[in-house]
Design a protein around this nucleic acid. Structure first.
Length: 877
RNA sequence: GGCCGCGUGGUGGAACGGUAGACACAGCAGACUUAAAAUCUGCUUCUGGGAAACCGGAGUGCCGGUUCGAAUCCGGCCGCGGCCACCA
């Protein structure tokens, strides 16, 4: 037995310094080896890292260190998603400038990340709030504008009347502003938009190619993009009934097969025709106002009754001039999908049915399910949206739904009214243009100037960046840029007259939509990207982050990359070839008698399993052990990574993060689990110490032959090597950990046995040294500091972080004999060991001779014997 | 409401259609200790028989099916979770 305890705190600082001084994680773009880009979603500098970061960055670091050992030129950078509301909130609450707050936080978090021992190229660090970064973002905004990918239009937004700002949809909770608690209003504001819809079809199609993305994320994006094929139909209106003699109403439908089931038309309250009618009809105007008064809160929408108002207008059925339909304004029709108007078919659409039932409009079933008698098929409270054959539909009767759709489209497409076809096929997307204007200070300024004379004028590129003024006050709500005394007042770059700047800044999701490209060459000052670097490094080989970004960030980045291609800033479409979404870090909750929550660090646990009881360390007051939930400030069930690293070391934190759960599922952080990881680190340290003693006198030359003991050690080592490599490639870190545990068990048994022998044979010494080296390399990606320490202990002068991944000797993995389980009627009864080369007939004979098999057969003759080579034998009696 | 995913010991979880429960945590028993910690050894799905070695039965939410063989594939239930949600 050797050595004292492994002192993680001392060793980790020491090895981090060595890595740092030797600059071994600096990545060169001119390195000729094959490239591998691994990236974790960069953090928002909130001030402290949390356990979710630890998990995320540990996984990325395992991949980075493994790929480096495999001979790749690995790019593994880190940066800061540094713009955003919390900085302004801090400014308002604590009178700190957002910039100072942000950079203080970055410094603190960087120190924390460094204590984790991550193999990052810090020379490439970027912060999105740095003018050296957002300058290029402004340049790309202007390029996108020129390329027709940016538009400016009036649109409805969530407006917080207390904070006086637009809020993103996700910042509206139950219809109220998340900070102010004020009921959010819908306002019409002129905003800047990115035309993500321009790429809707391509963004959808390309999902099929993203084979290394989780199916779940691809499906979520597919649903979000929401393609639907339908028909735009121009219904005639009776001009005598319309406010200004309008004679036409265009609707969008995907169920044109049900056109003969139509009972009414419905307009969105925002529809121009509805507004026009309201001008002449005060009751309608009141109804529309009432519709708008209802918030966008989920609850309201869930419970909202379908309400309508008969405008008195009458529409004419496209297939029958004598058939008129009432035109309603209805609260459930959205203005920003399709044309903002629909035809209602109550029999086959639940919403339409509820509406029709309320207003006594009746229904006509036109699709009859197979096996149902059309004469008795009646719709009452539930619309039928399944398959079937057309009924009550004149020339469509008897057709299937697709046939009927095609027939309707064909007829209406070729029928003209006023030189225009009555209908045309259209593909609609649920995806909307991306509104990027924010009435916020701490964001990237939109480089636009408004001139009364020249209109909307892009800031000339020579004047970039448009930087944020630093002398701003946060004593009032609203946008400090707007009320700054001088900042927005400029002269027009075109005519030289007085003009004003755009005071909105960009959504912070813009900042994070291209940072991965900037990492490939963060030094270039003349352009956002260095084309050669960006095209060679991208797409990111392995991107790792939370599932919460499945749509927003990941979809925006896919759009942005396409836009960058269109403007010659990149030559690729997809930013992330491989995506992995990791699970959350969860923890038990502890609730005090008064209902408040206690932190894990304040709580002491006694007993085990269902007898576990928790007490406050300080007072001994009992606390209730609550459900396991995502770590959050509100439930106070957070564990501070600093505390864990100070107590156990970064390696232990990293190891436990990887060990307990599959990486895509939630991991439950437990004190016991961490202690287990800590014990294992100590055990490894002792094991390598023991191995080093035996290995010290191992022969330098590889022995020509190995005895059985040495061979067994070698087989175990190379088997573990093969399996762990395979599982790292698949990101099955928890299985890796289990394989390393198993290898540890076999290696320590071998070493214990060897230690009992008076004279250990040279070949065994050699094999143990080899195995110990493989062991250290296997756990290096997960526990890099301990690995360096062990590597040195084994007599290496160089660093394990720079060592090549060991090569598997495949010969060692092939056994001469193979042990097969033997089943009788699918139940395991015995095992049989046969030569690897044994024929099926030989195996069958050996199996039938087994006493267990004969007993199970009870003298009967087997019907069949199935031999699956190298796997199993099943005797069918 | 729509779409999707998941149900395996006391717990986290392993398991190309082929020995279910690897590995770990917790637990129990023992060794070493004056003692504790640490460490080491053994046991640990349920159940019947047996002093024991061992021999049998059941078992991956429930019910069926396909197969020589199903945790895995198919169908139907039950339960849990996620995302989207008046998208025509």
């Amino acid at each position: 037995m050797t050595t004292e305890r492994y002192n993680a705190r001392e060793a980790e600082a020491r090895w981090q310094k060595v890595w740092d001084e030797r600059g071994i994680f600096a990545t060169r773009n001119d390195d000729p080896r094959p490239r591998y880009y691994v990236l974790e979603m960069f953090p928002y500098p909130s001030g402290r890292i949390h356990m979710g970061h630890v998990r995320n960055y540990t996984m990325g670091d395992v991949v980075a260190r493994y790929k480096r050992a495999k001979g790749f030129n690995v790019l593994h950078p880190m940066g800061w998603d540094a713009f955003g509301m919390p900085a302004e909130n801090a400014a308002m609450e604590r009178k700190i400038h957002p910039k100072a707050w942000t950079y203080d936080n970055i410094a603190a978090m960087k120190a924390q990340l460094k204590s984790m021992g991550l193999s990052l190229d810090w020379r490439r660090e970027i912060a999105t709030c740095d003018p050296a970064y957002y300058k290029h973002q402004q340049k790309m905004f202007l390029d996108f504008l020129r390329a027709g990918l940016v538009e400016r239009k009036k649109s409805k937004v969530n407006w917080d009347p207390v904070d006086q700002t637009v809020l993103a949809n996700e910042q509206v909770i139950d219809g109220r502003g998340w900070r102010s608690g004020a009921i959010v209003e819908q306002r019409e504001l002129t905003q800047w938009f990115f035309a993500i819809t321009h790429f809707a079809q391509d963004l959808l199609d390309a999902l099929d190619e993203l084979e290394r993305w989780p199916d779940k994320v691809r499906l979520m994006q597919k649903n979000w993009i929401g393609r639907s094929e339908g028909l735009l139909v121009r219904f005639g209106l009776d001009p005598a009934t319309t406010p200004n003699g309008e004679h036409e109403l265009e609707i969008f439908t995907t169920r044109h097969d049900t056109l003969f089931g139509a009972r009414f038309m419905a307009l969105s309250p925002d529809h121009p025709l509805a507004i026009a009618a309201a001008r002449k009809n005060p009751a309608l105007a009141a109804f529309i106002a009432e519709c708008k008064r209802h918030g966008t809160a989920q609850e309201v929408i869930d419970k909202a009754e379908k309400l309508g108002f008969d405008t008195g207008m009458r529409a004419i059925h496209p297939f029958d001039r004598t058939w008129t339909l009432p035109v309603y304004v209805a609260n459930f029709v959205l203005m920003d999908y399709g044309t903002g108007a629909i035809f209602g078919c109550p029999a086959h659409d639940q919403r339409d049915l509820e509406f029709a039932n309320k207003y006594g409009l009746g229904n006509t079933p036109v699709v009859c399910p197979q096996g149902q008698d059309a004469a008795t098929f009646v719709i009452a409270d539930t619309a039928y949206d399944g398959e079937g054959l057309l009924i009550n539909s004149r020339f469509l009767d008897g057709m299937t739904i697709p046939q009927a759709k095609e027939e309707v489209a064909r007829r209406l497409e070729t029928e003209l009214r006023g030189n225009q076809p009555v209908a045309q096929r259209q593909i609609n997307f649920r995806l909307r243009v991306w509104g990027i204007s924010r009435q916020r200070y701490w964001g990237c300024p939109i480089p636009i100037i408004y001139c009364d004379h020249c209109g909307v004028v892009p800031v000339p590129e020579r004047d970039l960046p448009v930087t944020l003024p630093e002398d701003v006050a946060f004593d009032r709500p609203g946008n400090p840029l707007d009320r700054h005394p001088t900042w927005k007042h400029v002269t027009c770059p075109q005519c030289g007259r007085k003009a004003t700047r755009e005071t909105d800044t960009m959504d912070t999701f813009v900042d994070s939509s291209w940072y991965f490209a900037r990492f490939t060459d963060p030094w270039i000052t003349t352009a956002p990207t260095e084309r050669a670097a960006v095209d060679e490094w991208l797409p990111v080989d392995q991107y790792i982050g939370g599932i919460e970004h499945a749509i927003l960030h990941l979809l925006y980045s896919r759009f942005f990359t396409r836009a960058m291609r269109a403007t010659n800033h990149a030559g690729i479409d997809e930013p992330f070839a491989g995506l992995f979404t990791q699970g959350m870090v969860v923890h038990e909750t502890y609730q005090k008698a008064d209902g408040t929550w206690a932190e894990p660090a304040e709580v002491k646990i006694e007993g085990s399993d269902d007898k576990r009881r928790a007490f406050l360390v300080e007072t001994g007051e009992p606390v209730e052990i609550g459900p396991i939930e995502k770590m959050s400030k509100s439930k106070r069930n957070t564990v501070d990574p600093d505390d864990i690293i100070a107590t156990y070391g970064a390696d232990v934190a990293r190891w436990f993060m990887l060990s307990d759960s599959p990486p895509d599922r939630d991991v439950n952080w437990t004190e016991r689990g961490v202690q287990g990881a800590w014990r294992f680190a100590q055990r490894l340290w002792r094991l390598i110490g023991d191995a080093a003693e035996i290995a010290a006198s191992a022969p330098a030359e590889r022995p020509a032959e190995f005895g059985p003991a040495a061979l067994a050690v070698r087989k175990a080592a190379h088997g573990a090597l093969a399996r762990v490599s395979d599982e790292i490639e698949k990101l099955h870190f928890n299985v890796c950990v289990a394989q390393i545990y198993e290898f540890t068990n076999t290696l320590s048994e071998a070493i214990d046995e060897a230690a009992e022998t008076p004279a250990v044979a040279p070949d065994l010494r050699w094999a143990i040294r080899e195995a110990a080296n493989i062991m250290v390399q296997l756990f290096h990606p997960m526990m890099p500091h301990l690995a360096e320490q062990c590597f040195a202990l084994l007599g290496h002068d160089d660093l394990v972080a720079q060592a090549s991944w060991p090569k598997v000797e495949l010969d060692l993995l092939i056994e001469d004999t193979v042990t097969l389980p033997v089943q009788v009627n699918g139940k395991k009864r015995a095992e049989v060991t046969v030569s690897r080369a044994a024929t099926n007939a030989e195996i069958e004979a050996a199996v039938l001779a087994l006493p267990e098999v004969q007993r199970a057969l009870e003298g009967k003759k087997p019907k069949r014997v199935i031999v699956v080579p190298q796997r199993i034998v099943n005797v069918v009696a």
